[in-house]
Write a protein that binds this DNA or RNA. Structure first.
Lengths: 121, 121
DNA sequence: CCCTTGTTTCGAAGTTTGTCTAAGTAACTC
DNA sequence: GAGTTACTTAGACAAACTTCGAAACAAGGG
């Protein structure tokens, strides 16, 4: 068991309840807030975007680091935040670590903001 | 293009570019991060949920305040943050202030997290 | 083994955020 | 006008977050 890449899965419960649906409980709201806190940073948004848009659906940290004027530890920290929010996963293959998005986590968020066509129009 | 759309094609417009689409610029990422910062709080998530799920699509502040063990100024502060993020709007009608969600803002977020079926499956 | 690349942890600035109390504005009623 | 209710703004403060540098840790190649 590698302590390196463990994540805390916060997306396991109700996958797609919309925002205009049932009332959020306190603990559910706190859990969701943690996910948005992970997204509430320009660097992390760009990291997630770069990973999601990567060829083959995965990106090596070695490629990501050079795109920011931040130290390697800082990039690593941001990736860890995204990982703990359940938005991405990483696995080490040889010297490098590759990250990819967790589709159910993103789909859950997409469903959260979905509105009925009668309102969205 | 000019066809009747019951469901909005959220991937077509620039406002709703998906996360796995074009690379986010720094400004765009910063602006999006501001929206997520507004969502990154349990109280604000519950407020947004309550407003979105309200009968008639709007909720009076007087009804919201009683649902939290927080002072009125604190609730007002959170509503202001949501308002400044463009997620809700409020208007005063007589003594009371009513808030409702801004559908395009939510639809944009829904589209942001939308994934192609090939990945999302 | 040592060396290189890449990641994580730790501790210390500086900044931001959530909450409060107190004071201010807006509208209704007498 | 004065008083009451509803909501917002202003100022202050503790808690949390961001970022960095230095150092430790992991994996592979010579």
């Amino acid at each position: 068991m590698s302590k390196l890449l463990k994540i805390e899965d916060v997306t396991a419960r109700e996958c797609c309840a919309p925002l205009n649906g049932p009332v959020l409980g306190e603990e559910e709201a706190a859990e969701l807030a943690q996910v948005f806190k992970a997204l509430a940073d320009p660097v992390r948004l760009r990291l997630l975007n770069l990973i999601a848009a990567s060829e083959g659906g995965e990106a090596c940290v070695c490629d990501l680091t050079g795109l920011f004027e931040l130290s390697a530890p800082t990039i690593s920290h941001h990736l860890k935040v995204l990982r703990q929010a359940g938005l991405i996963t990483g696995d080490r293959r040889g010297t490098w670590v590759y990250y990819r998005v967790v589709p159910p986590a993103l789909t859950r968020l997409s469903g959260l903001f979905a509105l009925p066509a009668s309102i969205a129009g």
